[in-house]
Amino acid sequence: MSQKPIVAIIDGGQHYHHDSITREPFKDFFDHVIYLRDVAKTDLSAFDILIIPCRTNAYYLAPLSGQLQAFLRGGGTLVAMGETFPDTWLPGIGFRSMPTNFWWWLTPGADLGLRMTDPSHAICRYLGKDDVTFHLHGAFEPLHPNQKSLVETSEGECQMFEDVISYAPGRLVATTLDPFFHHGAFFMPATTRMLAGMLHWLIDTEAERKSEKAA
């Protein structure tokens, strides 16, 4: 019997964090909301999943690196969303920024070229190409062998990865895509779908991970 995982999310004080976290349709997904400047004094071990939403200021995540790595090593799932630059506060992550192309979709028949990297991965039961296609900010490069790409461009540039090895039994999920920003600014329906898919995937698979561990 799997237990419902406890989901915590950091609130960096940005309006799009507050509006994503406190309004429908996602407000009931988060069991705990931790204000960014309170993270250092928070016992993270009480949580199964900790989400760092898009554009949380990396300068203030860097001093929390040890605490966040300890959370992972303790078995938690840490989720670093777009524009949080985990390459600057976790070891072993490569990142190359790209100019944002806001306008690709104005060309009839255009395709940004994003795709789910491995159709057999569980995340594909929750997310499809259309849910992750809005625009690009960068790519995780070089990708570490432990980092399994979940979303990539047509050139194979990683936009989201899962790493269940480097911090075992913890799980690190990182993406360059920033749906919390756009959803929280009431813009771009694909980003709302992406968040819905990601949250359900994270929660369902966390419950499976925990029940496997207990077995």
């Binding site: 960096g12 004080g13 940005q14 507050h18 554009r55």
Partner: peptide, 28 residues
């Protein structure tokens, strides 16, 4: 300046202070 660092500045000589859309409104 990064937002938290502006707290220690004297703002009185600035003609305008520009607040970013990503400002931490708890801190504000």
């Amino acid at each position: 300046y990064q937002q938290y660092d502006t707290e220690r500045l004297d703002w009185s000589t600035y003609d305008a202070v520009l607040i970013s859309m990503s400002a931490d409104q708890v801190h504000l």
